[in-house]
Structure formats: structure tokens, C-alpha cells
């Protein structure tokens, strides 16, 4: 039976080892080498790439990316939380179709969904056109090729994940606790702040980490909606590989991105684990 199981696992393990673990390990190793004169890799050990990554120029890009990603997280939460609550309150058989409807866009082409926002936001776009026609504005608003456009694109792309994560947390709460709180005289706002919100923190944490990680490493959205004027971490890595041809430094940046992701995921896992044990202790 055990040998059978290994036989089943072997092809998948082999594929993922050869084309995921080894290449990602390679990225880590590459960061310790120097860039070759003609863009290749010079196999001389150095820690210079890591020192360079904390240079104010690159640290600035890192902080800017983090700020954009964090803004996207906040707006995804503000949009996603009421939406997930509403879905969780529907009759059971309607919840699944509503969730599938939320996730549908995720499965379709991200480039095209991003492009749709160029059509909506550009100077001659749908929104500016409509506002001009209504006489609300005389000059087109600068909606595209700025931080606003990037955040809009990121929220649009990733709010489905947030809703899904929040839903799985909110739907686990029965109505009993909220009812008890209301019966004891708390108004609905107080009930939300003191009961519902703390109990759904694991969902908030999971959704936030997801949106943050996907946003900070994004390449397409800053490139198309930021008009290439603003560089985020994803674009910086892209440039190091395809334009500057400094692979070791690009690899260092990618490694730092993955490291950040691991730290956030670990924090989230610890957090969820702790609130689960607390719940057990309470029960």
C-alpha cells in the first residue's frame, strides 16, 4: 500500500521538485553572485546584491509597492466585508451561486480585465466622456496612469479573493452570538465591533495577506494602468531580468519578495492557530 502511494506521488513530486523547488533554490543562490560583464552571471561570491537592495533608491520602490499594496488591501476589505456578510446571510442554496459569480472573473484573462480599466479611465474614456456630457466637468479628470488607477486595478483583480476568505470566516458564525449580544442590549454597531469583527479576524488576516502578496508582486497592473511611470517591485524584477540584464540583483529582489511573503503567511498561520485554540479553550 505504501509503495503504491509513493508511485502515485512520484510524478508530481518529481515535476514540482525539478521545476519549482530547484528553480526557486537557484534564485536564492543567484543572489550571491556577481553580474557578468555582458549580462550573464559571474560566479564570484558577493553579498553586494543584498546591500544594494537596501539602497534608498530600491528601498523606496519597496516601500512604495508596500503602500500601494496596503491601500489595495484596505479597499478590498471595505468592499469585501459587507459583500461577504450579505452572501453569508442568504439562504444556503443561494450562497454557492453567488460565490461562484464573485470568483468567475478570477478565472478569466487578467490582462483583458486590466485593459477594461484603460477603456473606462482614459482621457477620452467612458467615465470622462459621460461626465463631460453631463456637464459635470469641463476638463477630463486624470484618472489613468497614476496611483489611483493602479489601486483600482488591484482591488478589481483581487477583491474576489478577499470576499472568499471573509465568507469562509463569516459563514462559520452562527446568528446566536449576535442575537445574544442584541438581547443583552448592545446595538448592532456595538455587536459588530465587539462580537462579529473579532471572531472573523482570521478571515480578515487570510484575505489581507492574499491581496497584499498578489498586489506587491504584480507586474501587469502597474505597467498598464500606471503607464510605466511608477515602478513597483514586480516591474523592478522584470526590468532587472529583461532590460538591465542584471539577473543576480533581480534574483535577490525576487528572493526578498518570497521571504516577505513567507513571513506574512507564517504570521497569518500562527494567528489563525492561536484564535482557534482560544476558541477551543472557551468552548
Amino acid at each position: 500500500m505504501t509503495s503504491n502511494r509513493l508511485l502515485l506521488l512520484a510524478p508530481g513530486l518529481a515535476w514540482l521538485t525539478a521545476l519549482l523547488i530547484i528553480p526557486c533554490g537557484l534564485i536564492f543562490v543567484l543572489g550571491f553572485f556577481e553580474r557578468g560583464v555582458y549580462g550573464g552571471i559571474d560566479y564570484t561570491l558577493t553579498t553586494e546584491n543584498f546591500a544594494r537592495a537596501v539602497d534608498p533608491l530600491y528601498a523606496g520602490i519597496f516601500l512604495y509597492s508596500a503602500r500601494i499594496a496596503l491601500t489595495a488591501v484596505v479597499f478590498s476589505l471595505l468592499i469585501g466585508y459587507p459583500a461577504a456578510t450579505c452572501i453569508a446571510k442568504q439562504p444556503k442554496r443561494r450562497q454557492m451561486p453567488l460565490l461562484i459569480l464573485v470568483m468567475m472573473p478570477f478565472w478569466s484573462n487578467y490582462l483583458i480585465r486590466t485593459y477594461a480599466w484603460i477603456v473606462l479611465l482614459n482621457r477620452e474614456g467612458l467615465i470622462n466622456g459621460a461626465l463631460t456630457k453631463l456637464g459635470a466637468i469641463s476638463e477630463p479628470l486624470p484618472l489613468l496612469y497614476n496611483d489611483f488607477a493602479i489601486v483600482t486595478g488591484l482591488v478589481y483583480g483581487y477583491v474576489p479573493f478577499m470576499i472568499l476568505a471573509l465568507y469562509s470566516s463569516i459563514s462559520k458564525l452562527g446568528p446566536e452570538l449576535a442575537e445574544a449580544s442584541t438581547d443583552l442590549g448592545a446595538d448592532s454597531w456595538r455587536t459588530f465591533l465587539r462580537i462579529t469583527l473579532p471572531l472573523t479576524l482570521p478571515g480578515i488576516a487570510a484575505g489581507s495577506v492574499f491581496v497584499f502578496v498578489l498586489s506587491i508582486g504584480n507586474f501587469v497592473t502597474p505597467d498598464l494602468l500606471g503607464g510605466g511611470k511608477r515602478t513597483m517591485l514586480g516591474n523592478l524584477i522584470y526590468d532587472q531580468f529583461l532590460t538591465a540584464r542584471d539577473w543576480p540583483f533581480g534574483a535577490t529582489l525576487a528572493f526578498l519578495l518570497v521571504a516577505l511573503m513567507m513571513v506574512l503567511l507564517t504570521c497569518q498561520a500562527v494567528f489563525v492557530h492561536r484564535s482557534a485554540t482560544q476558541e477551543e479553550a472557551r468552548a
Binding site: 528553480p23 502578496v213 522584470y238 519578495l257
Partner: peptide
């Protein structure tokens, strides 16, 4: 499923 696309992309290109 969670690793950023760009990381997998450059990792495979390097490999």
C-alpha cells in the same frame, strides 16, 4: 498557487 507569477517566471527562466 500563491507564489507571485513573476518569481516563478524568473526562476524558470534562470533554471
Amino acid at each position: 498557487m500563491i507564489i507571485p507569477d513573476i518569481v516563478l517566471a524568473i526562476a524558470l527562466l534562470s533554471f
